[in-house]
Design a protein around this nucleic acid. Sequence first.
RNA 1: GCCCCCGUAGCUCAGUCGGAUAGAGCAGCUGCCUUCUAAGCAGACGGUCGCAGGUUCGAGUCCUGCCGGGGGCGCCA
Length: 576
Amino acid sequence: MGAMTTTRGRLQVALQAAFDRLAPGADPVLRPSEHADLQSNGALALARTLGRSPRDLATEVAAAPELAGWCRAEVSGPGFVNLHLADHFLTGQLDRLSGDPRLGVPAAAEPATYVVDYSAPNVAKEMHVGHLRTTIIGDALCRMLAFAGHDVRRENHLGDWGTPFGMLIEHLLEIGEQEAVEELSVGDLDTFYRQARASFEARADFREASRRRVVLLQQGDEETRRLWSVLVAESLAYFDDVYTRLGVLLTDDDVVGESFYNDALAGVVADLDAAGLLVESDGARCVFPPGFAGRDGEPLPLIVQKSDGGYTYATTDLAALRDRVDRHHADRILYVVGAPQHQHLEMCFAVARSAGWLPASVEATHVAFGSVLGADHKMFKTRSGDTVKLVTLLDEAVARARLALGERAAHLDEADRHALAGTVGIGALKYADLSTDRTRDYVFDFDRMLAFEGNTGPYLQYAHARICSLLRRAHTDAGARPGALQVATPEEHHLALALLAFPEALDGALGDAAPHRLCQHLYELAGAFTTFYERCPVLRADDPATRDSRLRLAELTGAVLACGLGLLGIGAPERM
RNA sequence: GCCCCCGUAGCUCAGUCGGAUAGAGCAGCUGCCUUCUAAGCAGACGGUCGCAGGUUCGAGUCCUGCCGGGGGCGCCA
């Protein structure tokens, strides 16, 4: 299936033919419309260059034979062409959709290999709100890209290396391995880390031991490495538990931690040196990519080796970038990382380009996102000022969902009720994160995200559940026949348009890694359905043909909603 | 001091390559359940798109300056 099979694609081709006759290659400027199904604004732009009246041009476009029979076009205002798709055309398009597991989404014309870097928690440190957005957004992008037909390599750049590990291992030894494993396995990473930190700050002997331990770790001392791997394994088990509860795709197979690049770091520095990019400054070895300035307008360095000989996260990031191009043959690399890291990542990209590690054919993109804010519009913190544990957030979302479900779920048994609360609570949490422009900070509000009104997860899930209920009744009541589709009423027309716009909504969301565009579309689809549902009787339709057709419309809507929610990593319950 | 992001209705947010009267939801107001899940639907109300210039037939959108909020800026990661 190519682009021509999408409804908008068909229109684009027809209009292009009309515009080519006016001026070869002229853009029809096909856009959504409030006054029609779609509109073409191309005549307005063309009028100046051709020195003709925009209305004349629009009139010629509207008369295009390519549109005849399936699309009514009328000139409006200063030179808009309003386009109304014929119901029989929509019917035909929907017919092709209903047997299609891809729901009209064409397989990517140019499948690419994507490396998606996201989540990246730190070993022996609690996952907190800071990991919420990267994990949720990254997961949704992976699902959407894979569905669109791309090869997706998930990478969890685990923080499993660095100077803190001397301290963490010493702490593990002090409290005893048994006790440490117990603490970490129940997910009490905070206590573990904090106690280690406290000992480090309070005691000189502990600091000294920690420093020695870091050296041992880096030298590959066997026992030290074993202790380190205990920390990593126990933390990973905990993270996996959180990922399972969150419902994201990440597994241990996706972990490519910082330690993975240890052996490559010296090579990174040596190769930068060989390329003549290294500059020594105050004892540190740096690269100064052009175009980056710090305080006082001084050139800004990317430090790849500290004056004490140690490497930095910049070195690791460069090694990872290199690896992703060489080993994965990535065409595009997405970094789902908070906005404050923007300059750092851009510098890494610039250095990698200069060094020839990131060829022009490979695109590296910072998929930046804003901070999570509390109701006071300040960084989301607990009342005591601590960072909020991610699991606390998940617990509360589920508990609140259960409360909100209330008597609705009374008929379910305990296991089902528990599962439903999980799907609704976690879905609400994720949808709230995904449904606004990721670059903005967002205000975290349980009450709003769990509301059943408005652009929320529960609203979409509810729309889906109603459809399932309708279909269940249809089967028990009379047995649905696979009748012919018909689009007749304005509500059916509107719903059909929304159903057929799913592919381009996904395409738009993937275009700039913006899941909220898909959310927006699903919300509009659910709205179109509920209006249809209110005004067009389905089971009580006047005649069997209408009933069967409307059942098929409902079925399609349910399929698209479930698919769309699935691409966001959100479940679509059949009852709620 | 330099750089990045943000500023749209009382609140939370959409607004795609510059197009018609700037759209939703919430809150408040008016209707609609003997009928497929009312956790819903329909309607009215609500705006100097931070401010001031500029480009354009046309600016929430592009450019410049300013104001306000957040963030970053050499050896933590």
